[in-house]
Simulated assay, not measured.
Amino acid sequence: MKFDETTLQPAETSEESTRQRVARSLLVDGPQTAATLAKRLDLTPAAVRRHLDALAEEEAVEQREPRTASTRGRGRPAKLFALTDQGRDGFEKKYDDLAVEALRFLSEVAGEDGVREFAERRAAFIKEGLDRIAAGGETDLSPAQVLANVFTANGYAASVRELPLINGHDAGEQLCQQHCPVAHVAQEFPELCEAETEAIAKLLGTHVQRLATIAHGDGVCTTHIPPGSSGSGEVSKKKEQVTT
């Protein structure tokens, strides 16, 4: 099952089939139970399970145990369904193998420093996207929301999750990337993920923590952004430039 890389629509037709809608929801919204999918897509639970079974036969979807037991009353907690690597392949760019070979060659001729420099240059898209948003005058967004817009524009299907208060104190936000266009490459070259995290920290002017990555087998790339993180970083400077 192949999808357009920019719109996440099916490659052969602009009208999503129900099965493709199920797969797309797992990509954009992350691992979910069948009941959650049914509610989100306005389908019957039986219809969702039928499509999940078909996707599982294609090895595009797998079942996972929930990380924390949910309170569903009696019985076992509902299983989560998530896209497999093969399922993500339908959304991935077609040149992963070429990119891996190129980075292997770069590593051979320039060493780890060469790979890291490449990763840092690639991560420059974050600052470039920030500059475009700042130029557009969008000053009401939180730093995490600004970054989510930048990552989404570059194919990461990013969103922001506000964390609940801890003992009455702000716990910050999580930047969640449901899709990673370089996940397969980053499995062998984690420098790509590290450079993105370092760029985020520099732009926000504070330490951020990468909690999970798709490249390491997690369902979502998650980065914790502490409260008050606009600080002295580039995000704060860009806001000041727009408002003055």
Rank of each mutant, 00 (worst) to 15 (best):
residue 80 L to F: 06
residue 57 E to H: 05
residue 20 Q to S: 09
residue 79 K to P: 03
residue 80 L to V: 01
residue 89 D to R: 13
residue 62 E to M: 06
residue 43 L to Q: 15
residue 86 Q to N: 14
residue 39 K to D: 15
residue 61 V to I: 05
residue 68 T to Y: 15
residue 92 E to F: 11
residue 91 F to D: 05
residue 56 A to V: 07
residue 48 V to Y: 04
residue 88 R to H: 15
residue 56 A to S: 15
residue 92 E to P: 00
residue 25 S to L: 13
residue 69 A to P: 00
residue 34 A to I: 01
residue 85 D to V: 01
residue 94 K to G: 13
residue 38 A to D: 00
residue 63 Q to N: 04
residue 44 T to L: 01
residue 66 P to K: 10
residue 65 E to T: 13
residue 84 T to Y: 09
residue 46 A to K: 12
residue 71 T to L: 14
residue 73 G to C: 03
residue 41 L to H: 05
residue 76 R to C: 00
residue 37 L to Q: 04
residue 81 F to P: 03
residue 36 T to K: 06
residue 71 T to Q: 09
residue 69 A to H: 00
residue 79 K to N: 06
residue 77 P to L: 11
residue 48 V to M: 01
residue 29 D to W: 15
residue 80 L to R: 02
residue 28 V to Y: 02
residue 45 P to T: 14
residue 23 A to I: 08
residue 94 K to R: 08
residue 29 D to N: 15
residue 25 S to F: 11
residue 75 G to V: 07
residue 30 G to R: 08
residue 24 R to I: 02
residue 32 Q to G: 01
residue 34 A to L: 06
residue 78 A to V: 06
residue 87 G to E: 08
residue 26 L to R: 08
residue 78 A to P: 05
residue 39 K to F: 07
residue 64 R to T: 10
residue 24 R to E: 11
residue 61 V to P: 01
residue 66 P to R: 09
residue 52 L to R: 11
residue 93 K to E: 10
residue 21 R to E: 13
residue 29 D to C: 15
residue 44 T to M: 02
residue 77 P to K: 12
residue 85 D to E: 14
residue 52 L to T: 11
residue 70 S to Y: 08
residue 26 L to N: 10
residue 35 A to I: 13
residue 79 K to F: 04
residue 78 A to S: 12
residue 56 A to Q: 15
residue 70 S to A: 14
residue 36 T to Y: 07
residue 27 L to Q: 13
residue 94 K to M: 04
residue 72 R to M: 00
residue 64 R to V: 05
residue 93 K to Y: 06
residue 83 L to M: 14
residue 73 G to S: 03
residue 51 H to S: 14
residue 35 A to M: 09
residue 36 T to Q: 13
residue 38 A to K: 00
residue 84 T to H: 07
residue 28 V to P: 00
residue 29 D to E: 15
residue 69 A to Y: 02
residue 74 R to Q: 10
residue 71 T to N: 10
residue 20 Q to K: 05
residue 49 R to T: 14
residue 90 G to L: 01
residue 50 R to E: 13
residue 51 H to G: 11
residue 20 Q to C: 02
residue 65 E to P: 00
residue 89 D to T: 10
residue 73 G to P: 00
residue 47 A to C: 07
residue 90 G to S: 05
residue 75 G to S: 04
residue 20 Q to H: 02
residue 76 R to H: 04
residue 86 Q to C: 04
residue 72 R to I: 04
residue 21 R to F: 01
residue 34 A to V: 02
residue 42 D to I: 05
residue 60 A to R: 10
residue 78 A to T: 08
residue 67 R to H: 07
residue 79 K to E: 10
residue 40 R to D: 11
residue 64 R to H: 10
residue 81 F to Y: 15
residue 56 A to Y: 06
residue 80 L to C: 02
residue 87 G to F: 12
residue 74 R to S: 12
residue 86 Q to Y: 15
residue 37 L to D: 07
residue 60 A to Y: 05
residue 49 R to W: 03
residue 47 A to V: 02
residue 40 R to W: 07
